[in-house]
Design a binder for these strands. Structure first.
Lengths: 180, 180
DNA sequence: GTCGTCATGTAATAAGTTACATGATTTG
DNA sequence: CAAATCATGTAACTTATTACATGACGAC
């Protein structure tokens, strides 16, 4: 995808919240934001360099132990501005990528023997996912105080939870249709 | 995305349903399947060539009018097999790309003045989208007969509809939270 | 002292977008 | 006869994945 460089803005956003290393940034995609975007360190490190050349970010060198140097990146004024501009720009829609749905699209016979295993595989996955997200929400937002302090984060998690609930009920609906 | 060549399987699936040209295939992404994947003709034409070299598909030349030649592609036995194998393989999860949610993630102050316009922009879009999808469903699947004949298609559309409903109620939920 | 994690990079390849380029046919 | 659509392709570029490569630090 030669897209609109969304990763750049994600990194700016993450760095705006807290100055951190490329390694830290890469880990961010393991939870929360990972529900809606992903990136590997091999994509992040070169991009950070380019962003620094573009004066969007800068870094300081911190030494851990004796030798290990790490680069802690932070936003410049230009980076701040660029990020705000992105937030204000209209959001582009679409881009859902779901391989299971892709497959379903091609199964036009409701009696296909493939359906039952495919669906139960999905149910298993999405049930686990839902449980995991709900646990995550409870852990991160136990009271309203945490929600207030991280409103955006909470909304995104809630969206992921709603998505999974919707997915699950859609799968159930399919099962019911199949039973008739 | 150096992914798992999902487009290849989509093209195989579409060609399995009906032999058609690259141009036709490109148009398929304007509706239905476009809810879950997209591709341009500039990606499709070269891929068709490679798929033909790999003996997954073959083509016949049809002449339209006096001069215009079009290549009508169809599956080979190998292509059939490759497609069936894909259907049977486990589906990989994740890959939702939603720029609006990405932005929300970074708006951690519930009082941000950006929120209201962003949300109403989204409501407008998703309401329109929902209406469009529902109209599409009614047009393509007016009775149970059509659903039976194109079960997979109907499920995918239903999923898109459920997705939009979920999105809408999530946005409403946000509005309610904001009013307090 | 080794195993897991921290930490940073590059290279090769694949996938996807945008722009360039051309020409025929159909519809109004 | 002009505009929309049909039809096919290439080129340049960006984005993303997988694999290769190295080494330090911390905990047990």
């Amino acid at each position: 995808m030669a897209q609109k460089n969304r990763l750049k803005y994600i990194l700016l956003g993450l760095l705006k919240e807290k100055k951190q290393t490329g390694y830290d940034l890469a880990k961010s995609f393991d939870s929360d934001i990972g529900e809606f975007w992903n990136a590997n360190h091999s994509q992040i490190y070169p991009l950070l360099k380019r962003m620094e050349q573009a004066s969007l970010i800068d870094h300081e060198l911190d030494t851990v132990g004796e030798k290990l140097e790490k680069k802690t990146y932070f936003l410049t004024a230009l980076g701040q501005q660029s990020f705000e501009d992105w937030l204000k720009s209209p959001s582009e829609m679409g881009g859902a990528h779901d391989e299971f749905i892709l497959k379903l699209y091609f199964i036009n016979d409701a009696r296909s023997p493939l359906l039952s295993t495919m669906i139960s595989e999905q149910e298993k996955y999405h049930n686990a996912k839902l449980a995991q997200l709900q646990a995550q929400f409870k852990a991160k937002f136990p009271t309203d105080k945490e929600v207030q302090a991280n409103f955006g984060h909470s909304l995104v998690l809630r969206h992921a939870i709603e998505r999974e609930k919707g997915y699950r009920s859609w799968l159930e609906e399919i099962n019911q249709t199949l039973e008739n």
